[in-house]
């Protein structure tokens, strides 16, 4: 019973986190678009994930896709590398790290509660 409540709470947290990310990064992308001169540094970054099962990886790549500014292009056959096309890369490591700290942790709380 307690497990179920904890899991429901984790799902709620994931949803809120995701909505916040959606609004923040939508705003960032829209500002980039209407800026008169394009100042973007796009590129494809590879990201190692700690998630293993198919469900978790599908969920993670869907969430990455839903955030504007990042797009999952491909998943390697080893099942632990995601290739992400990002709109504005400042530091590739930092980008991968921030995804690991937000979405990946929240998904782990849901699936491994």
């Amino acid at each position: 019973m307690i497990t179920y409540i904890r899991r429901a709470w984790a799902v709620m947290k994931l949803f809120v986190l995701f909505n916040r990310e959606l609004f923040l990064s939508s705003y960032a992308v829209l500002v980039q678009i209407i800026r008169p001169r394009l100042a973007i540094r796009p590129g494809i970054v590879e990201m190692k994930t700690r998630l293993r099962s198919n469900t978790e990886i599908t969920l993670l790549s869907c969430l990455i896709c839903l955030t504007p500014g990042t797009l999952t292009l491909d998943v390697a056959h080893d099942g632990e590398t995601l290739y992400i096309h990002a709109m504005d890369i400042e530091d590739a490591e930092e980008l991968a790290e921030s995804i690991r700290n937000t979405f990946e942790r929240a998904i782990m709380e849901v699936t491994r509660a």
Partner: peptide
């Protein structure tokens, strides 16, 4: 574009 990790792989 500044980098392309997917190409080689």
């Amino acid at each position: 574009s500044v980098r392309d990790d997917l190409k080689e792989d």
